[in-house]
Design a protein around this nucleic acid. Structure first.
Lengths: 133, 133
DNA sequence: TCATATTTAGGAATGATTCCTATTTTTATT
DNA sequence: AATAAAAATAGGAATCATTCCTAAATATGA
């Protein structure tokens, strides 16, 4: 058993995968594959973009990181705890919102009879600091 | 003034634009540009895909329809009233949820001091009818 | 009808992501 | 430590949704 406890297709350890995981976990900036690629390249200059994409996908599939789609681009998030996102249309920043939306989700489950596996609130607007300018 | 009351770049009437708007407004299936294209082509065989994309974008910018990003693909929604979306991972259907999430939004606004212009809840799970199989 | 502004058709270009394959690395076994 | 099988990688080609470009067509207002 490797030190990640991988399942499914992630059977072997690789330094690339470890670096990609650590890079996503080490930021709150909701990076794209391209950004992760540029970071990982600093310690592993020969890493390929395809490897970054493949591993980000695998890590998300295996519940190690989250994939969030923003305007047609995949962003990754190392925080697995359920939380929401606010996008500032002014400074183009994605801000984490750690406020639960549980009552809404259970209201929907109750009224619709669908099973909700996961949910995500995506908010757009003007952030606190842009507002005060 | 044309019969749509367009603003911004939508200055002139065109039969293509009208057909595209009516097509989106005439379904609850959250269509993609490609789907709208195939529908519009039935009455306007020479319509081009670029025209469909351009008009869907303009109509969304002008508040006539909504653009929703699902897994990196833009879907359009003719219902402008605020509502949420549930995606069934079994039958791959997008289902409208007409339950307001207002209290959550105002809680976030109050606690964070951001201005929330709009918000959207994206839920994934298994729908009622798939559940009962 | 005329002059101007707007829109279109058609196709090329873009950009994020996925796919392909020969080579390299990891792992399990001896 | 040597070896064979399995898994992962590098590098680049392919894909696919979307945007951009331009000459021709259409709509508008006078």
């Amino acid at each position: 058993m490797n030190n990640f406890g991988y399942v499914l297709d992630m059977k072997n350890y690789s330094i690339q995968r470890e670096s990609i995981l650590k890079t996503v976990q080490g930021t709150h900036s909701h990076p794209t594959a391209e950004w992760v690629f540029s970071k990982v390249k600093k310690t592993l200059p020969n890493v390929s973009l395809g490897t970054v994409y493949r591993n980000l996908g695998l890590l998300a599939d295996n519940g190690k990181i989250q994939a969030i789609h923003f305007d047609g681009v995949i962003h990754y998030d190392g925080t697995m705890e359920n939380h929401q996102h606010f996008y500032c249309i002014e400074c183009k920043t994605i801000i984490d919102i750690h406020i639960p939306n549980k009552s809404f989700v259970s209201e929907v489950e109750q009224k619709t009879n669908h099973i909700i596996a996961n949910s995500h609130v995506h908010m757009n607007g003007i952030c606190k600091s842009c507002k005060s300018k």
